[in-house]
Amino acid sequence: MSTHRIFSTTRPLTNRLRRAGRRLRTAAGVAAAASVAVAAVAVPAHATPLTYGQDVSGYESDHDWNASSAEFGIVKATEGLDFLDSAFVRHWQELDKKGIVRGAYHYGHPSNDPVAEADHFLSVVNAQPAKPGDLLVLDLETTDGESVDDVNAWAKRWLEYVKSKTGVTPMFYSGWDFADTYGHGLAGYPLWVAYYGRAKGDVTPPADWKTWTIHQYTDTPIDQNVSALTPQQLRALGRP
């Protein structure tokens, strides 16, 4: 998803760094949970139908959504205080044409002011036509040298602020290990788990989460995900 996503337990570092500009995966995965009308459960893929989705950034600027079998798509919008993903508008418009569930994510840097970063994200996303069901996501995978408590407080502030401004409970994305370390107290936000090397949907939630919403299970040849929720249930997590 944004700067480098590195999963040391599932991909060699040199291989991951070739995809610089995507999200920095510092852990083995991320989990997802929702405190709002979600029936997501951490179950093996064979036990329940799963909804397939993809996520991209400017490094897949020409991704053909029309040819994709995805039922949801999540795209990078912003990073830090001023970065705007060059492909965001195109992806956003193409997802609208396709008519599937769509979401926008912000790659956070805890060394900055969380409110300032949230305002940057919202200014970019709100500049585009919105529709009911649009998902909002915080992608947090780096500490920027901050402590566990400070990173945790940063995430809480960003998520609380975006929720207060939009009425949407944002989704939280991170690697499993990162979320397990820095995600305590965030179980009220749907969790998107990136964990490779496991069957689709066969992942347990980290930290305080009891359920997951999306499992990102591979980045080959593109970031691929499954959700235990139906498209309609995913939309229920987005804009009213």
Rank of each mutant, 00 (worst) to 15 (best):
K156H: 14
P231A: 11
F172P: 01
T213F: 01
P231G: 10
H109G: 10
A27P: 12
A179E: 10
Y196A: 10
Q224R: 11
H184V: 12
F178S: 06
S147T: 15
V30D: 11
P170L: 03
H120F: 05
S69F: 08
P132M: 05
T143H: 05
H4D: 12
S174I: 00
L136M: 15
A155I: 07
A179T: 15
W212Q: 02
A67M: 01
F121W: 06
T218Q: 02
G108I: 06
G188E: 15
V115S: 06
A20I: 14
M171R: 00
V30C: 15
P205D: 11
Q54D: 13
Y107I: 13
H46W: 12
S147R: 12
V124H: 11
A70I: 03
A179K: 07
W158R: 04
V203Y: 05
G201Y: 03
A118S: 10
D150Y: 10
R22L: 14
N15A: 15
A153G: 08
D208Q: 08
F72G: 02
A34F: 10
G21E: 00
D119I: 01
G53H: 11
A194F: 04
D144A: 14
E141A: 07
E60D: 13
R11S: 10
D149N: 14
T166K: 04
V168E: 02
D150K: 14
Q128G: 03
I222S: 04
W212M: 05
A116K: 12
E160P: 00
A130E: 07
E79A: 12
T142V: 13
K200S: 09
L81R: 12
V226W: 03
W65H: 12
Y189V: 03
H91V: 03
Q128T: 05
Y105D: 09
G175H: 01
N15V: 02
P231C: 10
D113P: 05
V226H: 02
T169C: 01
D96V: 05
V168H: 00
A45L: 09
M1P: 11
A67V: 03
R157T: 13
Y189M: 08
L229H: 04
L159I: 00
G99N: 11
T166W: 02
W209Y: 13
G188P: 02
T48S: 12
V203F: 07
N225F: 00
K97A: 14
D180T: 05
V30N: 13
P12I: 00
V137N: 04
S61H: 14
T230S: 13
S147Y: 15
G133I: 04
P170K: 01
K200D: 08
V36P: 03
D223G: 05
T213K: 00
F72T: 06
A207R: 12
E94C: 07
L191M: 09
F178R: 07
A130G: 07
L95M: 14
W154T: 14
A116W: 02
A228Y: 01
G133A: 08
D149K: 15
D150V: 15
A236L: 09
T204G: 15
A31W: 12
A116F: 02
Y52W: 13
S61I: 06
T211S: 15
R102S: 07
A155N: 07
G80P: 04
L95E: 08
L186V: 08
V203C: 15
L138A: 00
